[in-house]
Protein backbone atom coordinates (compact mmCIF):
# COMPACT_ATOMS: atom_id res chain seq x y z
CA UNK A 1 0.00 0.00 0.00
CA UNK A 2 2.90 2.35 0.68
CA UNK A 3 6.11 2.07 -1.21
CA UNK A 4 9.26 4.04 -0.55
CA UNK A 5 11.75 3.97 -3.42
CA UNK A 6 15.29 5.14 -2.92
CA UNK A 7 14.45 7.97 -0.53
CA UNK A 8 17.17 10.54 0.12
CA UNK A 9 16.78 13.42 2.55
CA UNK A 10 19.55 15.91 3.17
CA UNK A 11 19.19 18.96 5.38
CA UNK A 12 21.10 21.99 4.13
CA UNK A 13 22.63 22.52 7.54
CA UNK A 14 24.09 19.02 7.74
CA UNK A 15 26.99 17.40 5.94
CA UNK A 16 25.61 13.84 6.01
CA UNK A 17 22.32 12.73 4.47
CA UNK A 18 19.69 12.15 7.16
CA UNK A 19 18.16 9.42 5.02
CA UNK A 20 20.53 7.87 2.47
CA UNK A 21 18.58 5.84 -0.03
CA UNK A 22 15.88 3.83 1.66
CA UNK A 23 13.52 1.47 -0.11
CA UNK A 24 10.74 0.03 1.98
CA UNK A 25 7.17 -1.18 1.56
CA UNK A 26 4.33 -1.27 4.03
CA UNK A 27 1.83 -3.96 3.10
CA UNK A 28 -1.93 -3.72 3.51
CA UNK A 29 -2.99 -4.19 7.09
CA UNK A 30 0.43 -4.83 8.54
CA UNK A 31 2.30 -3.16 11.38
CA UNK A 32 5.83 -2.47 10.29
CA UNK A 33 8.41 -1.65 12.94
CA UNK A 34 11.13 0.86 12.14
CA UNK A 35 13.96 0.57 14.62
CA UNK A 36 17.14 2.52 15.08
CA UNK A 37 19.06 4.62 17.54
CA UNK A 38 18.61 8.40 17.85
CA UNK A 39 19.75 10.15 14.71
CA UNK A 40 19.44 7.07 12.53
CA UNK A 41 16.86 8.80 10.35
CA UNK A 42 13.76 6.91 11.36
CA UNK A 43 11.74 9.98 12.34
CA UNK A 44 12.90 11.83 9.21
CA UNK A 45 11.67 8.86 7.16
CA UNK A 46 8.28 9.02 8.84
CA UNK A 47 8.04 12.79 8.48
CA UNK A 48 8.82 12.57 4.78
CA UNK A 49 5.99 10.07 4.38
CA UNK A 50 3.73 12.40 6.32
CA UNK A 51 4.89 15.35 4.24
CA UNK A 52 5.86 17.27 7.36
CA UNK A 53 9.47 18.04 6.48
CA UNK A 54 10.28 21.70 5.94
CA UNK A 55 10.88 21.51 2.21
CA UNK A 56 12.87 24.70 2.05
CA UNK A 57 15.38 23.40 4.52
CA UNK A 58 16.17 20.09 2.87
CA UNK A 59 16.73 18.33 -0.41
CA UNK A 60 14.51 15.37 -1.15
CA UNK A 61 14.76 12.74 -3.83
CA UNK A 62 13.23 9.36 -4.57
CA UNK A 63 9.58 8.41 -4.50
CA UNK A 64 7.00 7.71 -1.84
CA UNK A 65 3.97 6.06 -3.41
CA UNK A 66 0.67 5.81 -1.62
CA UNK A 67 -1.90 4.07 -3.79
CA UNK A 68 0.05 5.11 -6.88
CA UNK A 69 0.37 8.82 -5.91
CA UNK A 70 3.81 10.24 -5.28
CA UNK A 71 3.71 12.01 -1.92
CA UNK A 72 7.24 13.30 -2.00
CA UNK A 73 6.64 15.64 -4.91
CA UNK A 74 2.96 16.35 -4.38
CA UNK A 75 2.09 20.03 -4.02
CA UNK A 76 0.74 21.53 -0.83
CA UNK A 77 -2.95 21.36 -1.68
CA UNK A 78 -2.69 17.68 -2.70
CA UNK A 79 -0.81 16.94 0.51
CA UNK A 80 -3.48 18.63 2.59
CA UNK A 81 -6.06 16.23 1.18
CA UNK A 82 -3.88 13.32 2.27
CA UNK A 83 -2.96 14.73 5.68
CA UNK A 84 -5.22 13.28 8.32
CA UNK A 85 -7.48 11.75 5.71
CA UNK A 86 -5.27 9.02 4.28
CA UNK A 87 -2.33 9.24 6.64
CA UNK A 88 -2.70 9.80 10.36
CA UNK A 89 0.24 10.67 12.57
CA UNK A 90 0.76 10.13 16.28
CA UNK A 91 3.74 11.91 17.80
CA UNK A 92 6.02 11.20 20.69
CA UNK A 93 4.95 13.80 23.26
CA UNK A 94 1.16 13.78 23.56
CA UNK A 95 1.09 16.82 25.86
CA UNK A 96 2.92 19.21 23.55
CA UNK A 97 1.41 17.71 20.40
CA UNK A 98 -2.09 18.72 21.46
CA UNK A 99 -3.35 22.27 21.18
CA UNK A 100 -3.51 23.24 24.87
CA UNK A 101 -6.44 25.61 24.37
CA UNK A 102 -8.72 23.39 22.32
CA UNK A 103 -11.12 20.89 23.81
CA UNK A 104 -10.16 17.26 23.25
CA UNK A 105 -13.35 16.50 21.36
CA UNK A 106 -12.74 19.28 18.84
CA UNK A 107 -9.17 18.13 18.30
CA UNK A 108 -10.27 14.57 17.72
CA UNK A 109 -12.91 15.79 15.28
CA UNK A 110 -10.57 18.09 13.41
CA UNK A 111 -9.80 15.72 10.55
CA UNK A 112 -13.53 15.12 10.12
CA UNK A 113 -14.20 18.85 10.06
CA UNK A 114 -11.53 19.38 7.42
CA UNK A 115 -12.08 16.35 5.22
CA UNK A 116 -15.81 15.59 5.40
CA UNK A 117 -19.07 17.47 5.03
CA UNK A 118 -20.56 15.91 8.14
CA UNK A 119 -22.86 18.05 10.23
CA UNK A 120 -21.57 18.96 13.71
CA UNK A 121 -23.96 16.39 15.25
CA UNK A 122 -22.74 13.58 13.02
CA UNK A 123 -19.19 14.65 13.70
CA UNK A 124 -19.70 14.53 17.42
CA UNK A 125 -21.13 11.04 17.13
CA UNK A 126 -18.08 9.89 15.17
CA UNK A 127 -15.73 11.55 17.66
CA UNK A 128 -17.44 9.83 20.56
CA UNK A 129 -17.15 6.54 18.67
CA UNK A 130 -13.43 7.16 18.09
CA UNK A 131 -12.90 7.98 21.78
CA UNK A 132 -14.72 4.77 22.58
CA UNK A 133 -12.52 2.90 20.07
CA UNK A 134 -9.39 3.92 21.94
CA UNK A 135 -11.02 2.69 25.16
CA UNK A 136 -11.24 6.03 26.91
CA UNK A 137 -13.73 5.85 29.76
CA UNK A 138 -16.73 8.20 29.55
CA UNK A 139 -16.16 9.68 26.07
CA UNK A 140 -18.86 12.29 26.65
CA UNK A 141 -16.86 13.77 29.56
CA UNK A 142 -13.52 13.49 27.76
CA UNK A 143 -15.02 15.31 24.77
CA UNK A 144 -15.38 18.51 26.80
CA UNK A 145 -12.05 18.33 28.61
CA UNK A 146 -8.86 20.20 27.85
CA UNK A 147 -5.63 18.26 27.23
CA UNK A 148 -4.07 19.28 30.56
CA UNK A 149 -6.96 17.63 32.39
CA UNK A 150 -5.98 14.21 31.02
CA UNK A 151 -3.12 11.93 32.06
CA UNK A 152 -0.31 11.19 29.62
CA UNK A 153 -1.77 7.83 28.65
CA UNK A 154 -5.21 9.32 28.11
CA UNK A 155 -3.72 12.11 26.02
CA UNK A 156 -1.97 9.60 23.82
CA UNK A 157 -5.20 7.63 23.46
CA UNK A 158 -6.93 10.85 22.46
CA UNK A 159 -4.18 11.54 19.92
CA UNK A 160 -4.67 8.07 18.48
CA UNK A 161 -8.43 8.68 18.37
CA UNK A 162 -7.76 11.93 16.48
CA UNK A 163 -5.48 10.12 14.04
CA UNK A 164 -7.99 7.33 13.29
CA UNK A 165 -11.19 9.41 13.42
CA UNK A 166 -11.45 9.76 9.64
CA UNK A 167 -10.25 6.19 9.04
CA UNK A 168 -6.91 6.76 7.31
CA UNK A 169 -5.28 3.90 5.42
CA UNK A 170 -1.98 4.41 7.17
CA UNK A 171 -1.05 5.37 10.70
CA UNK A 172 2.45 6.67 11.37
CA UNK A 173 3.41 6.23 14.99
CA UNK A 174 6.54 8.14 15.91
CA UNK A 175 7.66 6.67 19.24
CA UNK A 176 4.15 6.99 20.63
CA UNK A 177 4.95 5.16 23.85
CA UNK A 178 8.39 6.52 24.64
CA UNK A 179 7.11 9.32 26.87
CA UNK A 180 4.76 7.01 28.78
CA UNK A 181 5.44 4.73 31.71
CA UNK A 182 5.73 0.99 31.18
CA UNK A 183 2.25 -0.14 32.19
CA UNK A 184 0.60 2.55 30.07
CA UNK A 185 2.98 1.63 27.27
CA UNK A 186 1.75 -1.98 27.33
CA UNK A 187 -1.89 -0.82 27.24
CA UNK A 188 -1.25 1.42 24.25
CA UNK A 189 0.45 -1.44 22.40
CA UNK A 190 -2.56 -3.67 23.03
CA UNK A 191 -4.81 -0.90 21.79
CA UNK A 192 -2.80 -0.49 18.59
CA UNK A 193 -2.97 -4.24 17.95
CA UNK A 194 -6.72 -4.15 18.43
CA UNK A 195 -7.17 -1.18 16.08
CA UNK A 196 -5.04 -2.90 13.48
CA UNK A 197 -7.16 -6.03 13.78
CA UNK A 198 -10.61 -4.41 13.88
CA UNK A 199 -10.14 -1.52 11.44
CA UNK A 200 -7.41 -3.02 9.26
CA UNK A 201 -5.33 0.16 9.46
CA UNK A 202 -1.75 -0.31 8.28
CA UNK A 203 0.79 1.10 10.69
CA UNK A 204 4.38 2.10 10.76
CA UNK A 205 5.65 1.98 14.30
CA UNK A 206 8.87 3.81 15.03
CA UNK A 207 10.78 2.95 18.14
CA UNK A 208 14.24 2.55 19.55
CA UNK A 209 12.90 -0.12 21.88
CA UNK A 210 13.30 -3.56 20.35
CA UNK A 211 11.15 -5.28 22.96
CA UNK A 212 8.22 -3.03 22.17
CA UNK A 213 8.64 -3.69 18.46
CA UNK A 214 8.86 -7.42 19.02
CA UNK A 215 5.51 -7.38 20.85
CA UNK A 216 3.73 -5.39 18.19
CA UNK A 217 5.20 -5.88 14.73
CA UNK A 218 5.27 -8.86 12.40
CA UNK A 219 7.89 -7.24 10.23
CA UNK A 220 10.70 -4.95 11.18
CA UNK A 221 13.21 -2.69 9.45
CA UNK A 222 16.45 -1.71 11.15
CA UNK A 223 18.05 1.66 10.38
CA UNK A 224 21.52 2.92 11.06
CA UNK A 225 23.02 6.25 10.00
CA UNK A 226 20.30 6.87 7.43
CA UNK A 227 20.51 3.47 5.84
CA UNK A 228 18.42 0.38 6.08
CA UNK A 229 20.60 -2.42 7.35
CA UNK A 230 18.12 -5.25 7.62
CA UNK A 231 14.45 -5.87 6.88
CA UNK A 232 12.37 -8.93 7.52
CA UNK A 233 10.20 -11.03 9.74
CA UNK A 234 10.53 -9.87 13.35
CA UNK A 235 10.99 -13.31 14.89
CA UNK A 236 13.51 -14.29 12.28
CA UNK A 237 15.56 -11.16 12.83
CA UNK A 238 15.44 -11.61 16.57
CA UNK A 239 16.55 -15.23 16.46
CA UNK A 240 18.92 -15.02 13.54
CA UNK A 241 20.16 -11.45 12.89
CA UNK A 242 22.31 -11.19 9.77
CA UNK A 243 23.79 -7.72 9.95
CA UNK A 244 26.46 -7.02 12.59
CA UNK A 245 24.61 -3.87 13.73
CA UNK A 246 21.41 -5.84 14.27
CA UNK A 247 23.35 -8.48 16.15
CA UNK A 248 24.79 -5.80 18.42
CA UNK A 249 21.36 -4.25 18.97
CA UNK A 250 19.80 -7.56 19.92
CA UNK A 251 22.62 -8.58 22.20
CA UNK A 252 22.11 -5.26 23.99
CA UNK A 253 18.59 -6.24 25.10
CA UNK A 254 18.70 -7.13 28.77
CA UNK A 255 17.19 -10.54 29.54
CA UNK A 256 16.44 -12.45 32.69
CA UNK A 257 19.36 -14.82 32.32
CA UNK A 258 21.98 -12.48 30.96
CA UNK A 259 22.93 -9.17 32.49
CA UNK A 260 23.10 -6.10 30.32
CA UNK A 261 26.62 -5.73 28.88
CA UNK A 262 28.45 -2.83 30.43
Amino acid sequence: MLEIRDLHVKFHTREREAVAGISLTIRDGEILGLVGESGSGKTVTAMSIAGLLPRKQCRLSGEILLGGKDLLHADRSELRKIHGNEIGVVFQEPMSSMDPLMKVGLQVGETLRIHTDNSPEERKKLVLAALDDVELPDPEAIYNKYPHELSGGMQQRAMIAAAIASRPKLLLLDEPTTALDVTVQAQILELLKKLNRTHGISMMFISHNLNVVRKLCKRVAIMQRGELVETGDTEKIFTDPQHPYTQRLISAIPTRTRKEPV
Binding site: H83, E93, E110, I114
Partner: peptide, 22 residues
Protein backbone atom coordinates in the same frame (compact mmCIF):
# COMPACT_ATOMS: atom_id res chain seq x y z
CA UNK B 1 7.58 26.46 16.34
CA UNK B 2 5.51 24.44 18.77
CA UNK B 3 4.66 20.78 18.37
CA UNK B 4 0.89 21.25 18.22
CA UNK B 5 1.33 23.21 14.98
CA UNK B 6 2.91 20.15 13.39
CA UNK B 7 -0.04 18.10 14.62
CA UNK B 8 -2.44 20.62 13.12
CA UNK B 9 -0.65 20.39 9.76
CA UNK B 10 -0.67 16.60 9.93
CA UNK B 11 -4.46 16.73 10.15
CA UNK B 12 -4.76 18.62 6.90
CA UNK B 13 -5.07 22.22 8.09
CA UNK B 14 -3.96 24.83 5.59
CA UNK B 15 -1.93 27.84 6.65
CA UNK B 16 -5.04 29.82 7.51
CA UNK B 17 -6.46 26.90 9.47
CA UNK B 18 -3.27 26.63 11.50
CA UNK B 19 -2.97 30.36 12.13
CA UNK B 20 -6.59 31.19 12.86
CA UNK B 21 -7.72 27.84 14.21
CA UNK B 22 -4.85 27.16 16.58
Amino acid sequence: EKAYVRTAISRGNDRKGVLVGH
